[in-house]
Every structure is written in structure tokens, then in C-alpha cells.
Write a protein that binds this DNA or RNA. Sequence first.
DNA 1: ATTAATTTTTAGATTAACCTAAAAATATAT
DNA 2: ATATATTTTTAGGTTAATCTAAAAATTAAT
Lengths: 218, 218
Amino acid sequence: MLSHVEENYLKEIYGLQEATLRGVSTNSIAEKMQTKASSVTDMLQRLSNKDLVVYTKYKGSRLSEKGRLMAISIVRKHRLWETFLVEKLNFLWDEVHDIAEQLEHIKSDKLIKKLEAFLGNPKFDPHGHPIPNSNGQINKLNSVSLAEFKIKEEGVFVGVKDSSDSFLKYLNKMNIAIGDTLKLLYIEPFDNSFLISANTRQFNISENVAKNLYLRSE
Amino acid sequence: MLSHVEENYLKEIYGLQEATLRGVSTNSIAEKMQTKASSVTDMLQRLSNKDLVVYTKYKGSRLSEKGRLMAISIVRKHRLWETFLVEKLNFLWDEVHDIAEQLEHIKSDKLIKKLEAFLGNPKFDPHGHPIPNSNGQINKLNSVSLAEFKIKEEGVFVGVKDSSDSFLKYLNKMNIAIGDTLKLLYIEPFDNSFLISANTRQFNISENVAKNLYLRSE
DNA sequence: ATTAATTTTTAGATTAACCTAAAAATATAT
DNA sequence: ATATATTTTTAGGTTAATCTAAAAATTAAT
Ligand SMILES: [Mn+2]
Ligand SMILES: [Mn+2]
Ligand SMILES: [Mn+2]
Ligand SMILES: [Mn+2]
């Protein structure tokens, strides 16, 4: 059975390796885990002995198939708990991450199965991220960043890329929520800022914000 | 902030010290924690340094006021989570202990407050044990063991003393559940077994079972 | 009051998870 | 190609939580 710390490593390595086909660097893991590279090396060796990570000195690391499935199962728990916190306990979407970070480590298959049923088998968490099923399959969110929209194109806001507290709080303040229909009206050439309409309102967002909003157009 | 292990020690010491006015022995803690006496001594010294336990070599230990309040807060979380598991996720009362043993360590005051509200501010957990309030006050269950009943006396079954899986499973099998009205009909002198009636049914239970059933009479 | 039994503590090791500082390997720049 | 910079690993150390074996204190028995 894995420790909390091992599980956190697996989950972060998983997140990093999804963004690239090459090995994940020791330093990038250290940064994500807020720890030192030497500690990461230590852990990589341990995870490698347990056949959860394929590690070769000085080359990057990647999860083994076994490690990948463990990582996905932790992501699954994390997102189900986040959904519980928002849907049942009325937390805001920017308050749930740290609590889910703890809850994801509770060991009980039966608990997760029952929680999932209690929530009505949700497919997405409060940030619009897909919830893997119990076999580790993930419903890829078929959506595109607002930054890639053409003028006059519109779509439904279905998820964020960055789900940091500060970004989510910004969206709260701007009154932009999942489910909203957004339309790109104009891109200001000077600073690449985007003029957007949602229902009757109009407002400006930075290019950086646009990149972090995912919409389903069609 | 306390570790999971420290929290478990506090909770067990609390349980043991409630049963006596004298100090809690190192060995009894070791037995409850399923560990060695030497490990317990080690931990007692650590908890004593943190002013959570009053420890004097070779004499027993007791929780400090600070330690007692921490212990009660863990009991509170344990019982709220057990209630959640039974009331919302449809677990049976004999399945929830181990999961609550993990959930009780999740750190978030806001979470517990919201969970409590979501459950409708329950006063008792699925085993009939009182849920402390957020100030550490405990509604003492005013009930008496069935073993102390007189013939023809009846009462409502409100809680168990022993809440081991095996005892709870026994009660499931016998179809005895919290809320049932039980009446003592006869005590067999030969083996002190109790003849009980519940609604229309009649059955026998051992004296040991009777001792573990708490009822509110009249 | 001694002796024997039991309980509790200390001494010394181990393991996971971290750290700092130094060494080794790899990548980049001249 | 060589020197410099960066990344990564190793070496050595710390702390929490555990263990076994031995020593010390307490309790029970003669
Ligand atoms: Mn976590
Ligand atoms: Mn999320
Ligand atoms: Mn516990
Ligand atoms: Mn209980």
C-alpha cells in the first residue's frame, strides 16, 4: 500500500507527463512538489523499485503502466471529492482543492463507489475536468481554448485549464461560470486583449485569461 | 499541527481515561494502539513535551485540558463522518469504523461545520454515541444497560457500548436495531440469559449482549 | 522483608521522508 | 573543442515512528 507522499508524487508526475512525450525532469517534479531535487531523486528511486516509475539516472522519468493507473485512481478520487464538496456541501469551486488534496488519500474502494453513486455518476468536476471511471478511462474533454476562437465565434464555457485559487477567484469576480455562453467580439491588437460578450454583458479579458478558458463550440 | 499518529493516540487515551479517574497505564495504551509499550513511552514523552498529556514516569498518564479538547474534536469528526457514511452513502453501521478512522484526520474546520449542517446537526452517531459540539461539549446519553433492567421493564434501544464489527453484525443478524422497543421478560437463572420481546418477536440473548445494549427506559 | 513477577523505561537500530553541501553528468556558449 | 552553466545525483545528516533487548522501577507473593 502506498503512502500519502508516494501517491502525491504519482499524481504530480502524471500531470507533468501528460503534457509531453519525453521524460519528466527531476527539477520539474521538485517544483510541483515544493521540495528539493535531491528529495525527488530519492523518491524516484523508491518508486522505481516498486515498479511505479521508469527511472534512468540523468534521463527523465515516466510512470509505468501500473503507476499510471494508480495516479489516475488518485485523480479520480480527487475530482469526485471536489464534486461532493461543491455539489453537496456548497463550497465554492476555489475552496475545494486543499481539502480534496487530503480526501483523495482515503483508502476504500467501496467508499469511492458509493460516493460516485451518491453524486449521480458525475462526468466532470467543478472545474470542468473529466472524472476517470473506475477502470482508469478518461473522457477527454473535447473543447478548445478561447484564445483559439475566431471573431464572432461563440461557445459554452466548460472548464478551466489553470485551476489555481487566484484564477478561480478572478472568474468569480467577473461573474464567469461554467455553462455560460461566451462570444468573442474583438481582439485588441495593441495588447491582444479579448472583448467578450456573455448574455447581455460585455467585458475585456487578457490573452492569458483567454488561454485558460476552455469552451465547447461546434 | 498534529500528525495522524498523534491524533490517534490522543483519541485512545481519551477513551481509556473516561473509564477511570486514575492515570492510564502505558500497557493499556499499547494494547489499544496495537503497538509496543516502548513505542508508547516514546509517544507519551513527545505528547507531554507538547503539553497534550500529563506524564510522569512509571505513573499513568492523563490528557491535559488542551489534549482532552483535541481528543474530543477528533471523536467529533469520527462520529460525524460515520453518520455521513450511514445516512448519506448507505453503509451499514458495522462497515463505517475503519473509514471514519481515516476521515477523522482531514484538516478543515469549515469542512466539519458544513458536513454537520449537511447532516442536519445530528446529536448521535449510528451506534448511538453522542456527537460532541464544536466547543467540545458532549450530550451525555442518559440511558442504562439492559443488564440492569427489572423483569417486565421496557425501553428504547438507543446505543451500543461495544461497537466492534462482530457485535454489530450479531445485532444485524438478530434484527435488533436502534429505535427498537425492547422488554425484559425473564432471566434464566441457569446461565443468566435474558428473554426479550421486541414487537411481536421473542428471543434470547446472553448476559454479555445485554450489558452492551443501552436503552432509554420510560 | 526478601524474592519473584510484572510493568515501564532506556538504549540502540531501522525506515520513510526530508534536508544541505558537494560531486558528477549533461547542456550551453564561446 | 573547451570552458561555463545547469541539472541531477550522491553523501551524510535529521526527525517521526516504529521495533527488540536489556535495565530499572513497581507490585505481588512468600
Ligand atoms: Mn494529496
Ligand atoms: Mn478540479
Ligand atoms: Mn484514526
Ligand atoms: Mn461510532
